[in-house]
Design a protein around this nucleic acid. Structure first.
Lengths: 334, 334
DNA sequence: TATATATCTGGAAGGGCTTCCAATAAAATA
DNA sequence: TATTTTATTGGAAGCCCTTCCAGATATATA
């Protein structure tokens, strides 16, 4: 069934080492020999056996990417960014979806010891010190995206600054009662965005009032970054009646979508009764006019692969830490 | 660096064949021997080398999924559905993203000859007869999702019926001028949905009027299934002035989102001035109250993997063709 | 007790490739 | 022309497993 390098060698009338050499573009091959081999390959429609090659080379040309639940556009954009260079450099991409945090360890173990991949991209999840050490020890490159660890390459958003900018903008618009809808604080971005929110209040001389902070409920798959969670969080804020905030910074656009629905259900208008700024700039935000903090997802994905490939090929040695500052996109909700 | 089966054999004081047998749960292993081996594995933290195993077994435990540009939620939902059984059965998933149609062939070639994967899932793209034959000849299972070929397992939506139901509903609501915004007809679903639209008109005694049909522009990555394309298509429909349709069936929700924006910009109201029904029921449709035809994406993904795995293990032999009829979800736009 | 049968185990062969070493041929130099 | 040097080439060894065959041991049967 499968045509192997031996068949090619026989047809071309050369040794198998020679075939392998033209396959790998090694030098020291005479043009005539190369042509003979190429012709034979063409004739037999030969394609190298990926696993055999991987075994011999100790290199698989596969990268893995670990994402938490495919929740929305954030990851899609990232994936698009990641795909681009991967395809170009003839790598394959294996996808691990971690729905529950405890599964992360088993995926990391698999990736570490299975010798299936040449490198890994870990998205939006934090890496424990033990694993960071283990990756370094095994010399398996890993890069973090939307997460940070001092010991490995990381690309991350300045969440604190982003939240700060959004909150400050709301305050500077004249709002006195500026609330926040955040996700579960066990999510690092959520925790840090809260810090930014508080910092902005403080800088503007507003004391933090816990009744204006609502933490979205988590469900089995989202840590509170969901439409439903945003909806019910806003409902809770609206229960404050006349004392409700006149502006709300929301920790993700997807929650903001739910929150907007809740506001409309109360027959309140946006931004007149309540102004809103979200976070992420997912594709739908533009369609619904949602003001938000844009994260350069595509770019981060692209850069992450770039660094990962360089790391794999040993082209860089020093640690690479890059931070992105989210950009305020003003639309119609504030 | 890497601990191999030889190390385990040595530590356990057994032959390597024995180690392999306990790894693969073969029978004819005495409980004591098994324990010794298991202990050694534990002690060394041994994990089998995926590529070596794949080479020896001629089976990789990897499935590949080929998707056209990650455009939106349709594919996310599908991916979620696919992930579930894949994880459970310890397969890995490699993702190929086909942005341009001509790249499909090169991906298929790679998948066919590279021996990297045990099976493939092809989404929303049609398979040519030549490739269908080649897959069968090479005995590499492939299943189509949201697409159809008589020679391979297929899961598909009854697009014609779906479009028919949507259009008929609009007509039965009393609308006389029912338009359609479709995507490029080179996309099979788009072509077939148009047929359903026409069939409904005909059944209700309305003659098809080409000025009420607008084909969305395609951009480099979407065949017209995009927000921008829906927006400008609706703009064109609105240029008809008073003669414009009072109801429009739109071939995807994402286009409908753009179309709704166009309508609102003209200060027209939905559904009073123009009623709308989309197609897909993406996550945002509920948030914006869009009536639509729901496709069971998650379920299709799940079933596709199920069948694929059964096919790989030889548990089924006859061809599997399953069609899903989309369900009309009535919300606020009609 | 001798023999047949069932159970368990070791290890060679093989899966398809790369890489290295040695060998040969061709070209350059003395 | 004889001797180096250089450019090519063939093929064995090795990457890490699984599988099959044969041998060893234990158990059942005559």
């Amino acid at each position: 069934m499968g045509v192997t390098i031996y068949d090619v060698a026989k047809i071309a009338g050369v040794g198998l080492g020679t075939v392998s050499r033209v396959l790998n573009n090694s030098d020291h091959i005479s043009p005539e020999t190369r042509k003979k081999v190429l012709d034979a390959i063409e004739k037999l429609n030969y394609k190298p056996h990926a696993f055999a090659r991987g075994l011999a080379k100790q290199k698989t040309n596969i990268l893995s990417i670990i994402v938490p639940f495919f929740t929305g556009y954030f990851y899609i954009e990232l994936l698009k960014g990641i795909q681009k260079p991967i395809t170009k450099f003839e790598y394959d991409l294996v996808l691990y979806n971690v729905e529950k945090n405890n599964r992360l360890n088993s995926v990391l173990d698999k990736v570490l010891n299975g010798k299936l991949v040449d490198g890994v991209i870990l998205i939006s999840m934090s890496l424990s010190d033990e694993y960071a050490i283990e990756f370094n020890r095994q010399n398996l490159p890993i890069v973090l995206v939307d997460s940070y660890h001092p010991g490995v390459d990381s690309f991350f958003i300045e969440n604190k600054k982003g939240a700060y900018i959004a909150t400050k903008h709301l305050i500077d618009l004249g709002h006195k009662r500026v609330g926040m809808i955040d996700a579960q604080l066990k999510s690092t971005p959520a925790k840090i965005r809260l810090e930014g929110y508080k910092a902005a209040l403080k800088d503007r001389g507003i004391t933090f009032d816990s009744k204006y902070l609502v933490i979205s409920d988590s469900d089995e798959k989202s840590d509170g970054f969901s439409r439903e969670a945003g909806y019910s969080a806003m409902k809770r804020l609206l229960m404050l009646g006349e004392d409700r905030p006149t502006a709300v910074f929301i920790s993700s656009d997807i929650q903001a979508v739910g929150a907007m629905k809740a506001i409309r259900e109360e027959k309140l208008t946006i931004p007149d009764d309540i102004a809103i700024i979200g976070f992420d700039d997912i594709e739908f935000s533009e369609a619904i006019g949602l003001s938000t903090m844009r994260q350069p997802m595509f770019e981060m994905g692209e850069m992450a692969v770039d660094i990962l490939l360089k790391r794999i090929s040993g082209q860089i040695s020093s640690l690479f830490h890059k931070k992105y500052i989210p950009e305020l996109i003003i639309r119609e909700t504030c």
